[in-house]
Write a protein that binds this DNA or RNA. Structure first.
Length: 304
DNA sequence: GTTCTAGAAC
DNA sequence: GTTCTAGAAC
């Protein structure tokens, strides 16, 4: 079968039992209508994908929200379903191909709500892990790529350090930064849908061209000529501006990692002195000092 | 989507 | 030297 690679998310989203998926699919958690997986080629310290499941079952009763986009009424004789179309109780998979298809769907509000709900849990998970490992949290974006080569709809939940070995190309960087319109934030898509828009504002071509734009830091606005320089800047910013905030906390870093980790196991109360770093400070120019960073991840845990 | 290769271009 | 573009990949 040619081009199986772009069907990978369809396969995962179609899993009847997410626990039975191959282990390298790396499920974080799931619920009735969504599955969240680790991105196989994470472009940041934290990078997850939230997928609506196939089939995506509609809630019973009426649809809330958009009356202008109400699902087509069933023409049922005597209250019984006629015709061979099995169940009209699910969102057709074709509506879930990508964000553009979803925006034309009568079920867009319900799908987005389910994805949002799951992504809220992902945010909690990420922030807890940031706090536990580094004693600090930093910004996370939720966005759809305006154009995607992977088939099934997926919401990226990505920490904005963008520090990763798998961030290898300019287009990778530009596709995630909130300062470039290629990443369509969940909040913005919700707004467009609420306004009745059924398509993104720009053409596919226009979005793809955004990935050829200049290399500008989303932290400082600084321009870079070479991708390697931007990479060094991202690493430096993360280590010296973001993570440094976590080291000035109540604990000194002498036994920080081990003790923090031990203290937070099975405990729910590490929310007390949480710091947030929102960085728009220009940093003093720092030479490229790249070090290797490995994140040891925790095991996947199914919901319920 | 990724990896690899090649040649052109800066 | 690096970046960019293009094509192939069973």
């Amino acid at each position: 079968m040619p081009q199986a690679w772009n069907q990978a998310l369809v396969r995962i989203a179609s899993a009847k039992d997410p626990n039975a998926l191959p282990t390298d699919d790396r499920v974080l958690f799931y619920d009735d209508r969504t599955i969240t997986i680790y991105d196989k080629f994470a472009k940041a310290q934290y990078h997850f994908l939230v997928l609506p499941r196939i089939p995506f079952k509609l809630a019973n009763g009426r649809d809330k929200g958009n009356p202008a986009q109400a699902p087509p009424a069933l023409s049922a004789a005597n209250g019984k379903l006629t015709l061979g179309s099995t169940s009209s109780n699910v969102v057709p998979a074709s509506h879930l191909r990508n964000i553009s298809a979803l925006m034309t769907s009568p079920y867009v509000v319900e799908v987005l709500a389910a994805v949002r709900e799951a992504s809220d849990r992902v945010l909690d998970h990420i922030r807890d892990d940031m706090q536990r490992k580094h004693g600090v949290t930093w910004s996370i974006e939720r966005a759809f790529h305006a154009v995607s080569s992977m088939e099934h709809l997926h919401l990226h939940v990505t920490s904005m350090d963008l520090v990763s070995d798998r961030l290898k190309h300019k287009k990778h960087y530009l596709s995630f930064v909130p300062t470039v319109d290629f990443a369509q934030r969940l909040d913005d898509v919700d707004k467009m849908v609420a306004e009745g828009r059924q398509a993104l504002p720009k053409s596919e071509r226009a979005y793809e061209n955004l990935l050829k734009g200049p290399l500008t830091s989303h932290h400082t606005g600084q321009r870079f000529k070479f991708f390697s320089e931007l990479k060094a800047h991202l690493e430096s910013h993360w280590r010296h501006t973001v993570l440094a905030q976590g080291e000035t906390g109540p604990e000194t870093h002498a036994e920080s990692t081990a003790s923090k980790r031990a203290a937070s196991i099975g405990a729910e109360e590490h929310s007390t002195s949480r710091r947030k770093v929102e960085s728009h400070q220009p940093e003093s120019t720092s030479g490229p000092n790249a070090t290797e960073s490995d994140t040891d991840e925790e095991p996947a845990l199914p919901l319920r």
